[in-house]
Design a protein around this nucleic acid. Structure first.
Lengths: 200, 200
DNA sequence: TAGTGGATAGAGCGCTCGTTCTACTGCTGC
DNA sequence: GCAGCAGTAGAACGAGCGCTCTATCCACTA
């Protein structure tokens, strides 16, 4: 079947097959982790077949997972950048990130959270490739926040430490939001993080 | 084989079979999540057999998982209580919790983290029983911190919100610690949380 | 028209999973 | 002595997993 690119039941069918597979994998792994996500389900969600999956990812599920983590990480980077660039006040900018996350979560029924958390927790100490990909993602986000805070005049060392806590708090608050199906933890975190940053 | 209670290759063989099974399940699920943890592996680690597992948990893996979550949650409650009661200064007490977590993590090679995070993330929106058990655990911890802060003279409403952020930050920092195999995020979180609390 | 190779397609392999089932052991009350 | 029962033991089942394999389709080149 061949479906010209614009005809399909899948929302992003216009993208090429490889991209659709990565997107589907990223979404599923973000929502339920690595082990609970089957390759056949990924292929079905992507509107692709098993043959295509193994054609593009001969390394199998793990290779696909690493790619999916990178893809999701980039999406979250974009969200952070949007929040951080939303205003001149660095405290308010970080708070905006928390609010954006809360909104994304609510809009997806508490499904679309941090793209690496669920998968990373399954693999700590068990898969160097996946742990490294997760570490790179977190490091990249931390750097992004640190640079933004430093640009606002906060001493570089303080900015780096603050960025670490900002990320910790955002990640943890997101977990709490998802488990309790409530925006509250991220809303509260937004206020407290802003207050903490203003103290510098 | 019978093994009088004191003879066995397993560290906690003196406990009864049911307890050993729950402990083994809690440890494995804490380290690698629910899906990656097989029932046969749980039985082997507990020094029990499949028959015993299904004898005590006729509801199967999910019933066992809920019990394991409760068990792990109680252990973490004990850790929090120890930290919170370590000093009169509420800010310092919360910081001590973070330090205790960092130490536990390091001592276990970044394996023994929050007992519910990994499993909870796999099941959000997919299993009411497990999500509820996770929510209860987080709520219990939050309450514990809130009461401690209120007892130190912080207004009740502020204490409740602060407790929420404390938990968010601890959970997130722990994730960062495990992924990066470093105590740094929790050490930094300890300082920042103390500072935030002192502002009230 | 024939040839080439990236991409698609899905049947089927071996394996492991959670679960079920039957048999056995050892204690307790009669 | 033995019935009854909680607990132990592990073989076996069906389902589903990740993955392999062969066949086919379709542009593009010559």
């Amino acid at each position: 079947m061949k479906a010209s690119p614009m005809v399909s039941a899948h929302p992003d069918a216009q993208a090429d097959t490889r991209t659709r597979i990565v997107r589907a994998a990223a979404t599923l792994m973000q929502r339920q982790g690595y082990e609970a996500t089957g390759i056949k389900r990924i292929a079905a969600d992507a509107g692709a077949t098993l043959g295509s999956v193994y054609h593009f990812f001969p390394g199998g599920k793990q290779e696909l997972a690493v790619e999916a983590l990178r893809y999701g990480s980039q999406e979250f980077t974009d969200l952070l950048r949007t929040g951080l660039d939303s205003t001149d006040d660095p405290a308010e900018a970080v708070a905006e990130c928390a609010r954006l996350m809360a909104q994304t979560l609510r809009d997806s029924d508490w499904s679309d959270g941090c793209p690496v958390a669920a998968t990373a927790l399954e693999f700590i100490g068990r898969s160097p490739a996946i742990q490294l990909a997760s570490e790179e993602a977190l490091g990249q986000w931390r750097e992004l926040v640190a640079v933004r805070l430093a640009a606002a005049g906060i001493p570089v060392d303080d900015a780096r430490d603050l960025a670490c806590t900002v990320l910790s708090t955002l990640e943890g608050a997101e977990l709490l939001c998802r488990v309790s199906a409530s925006e509250q933890p991220l809303r509260i975190a937004a206020r407290h993080l802003a207050r903490l940053i203003r103290a510098y």
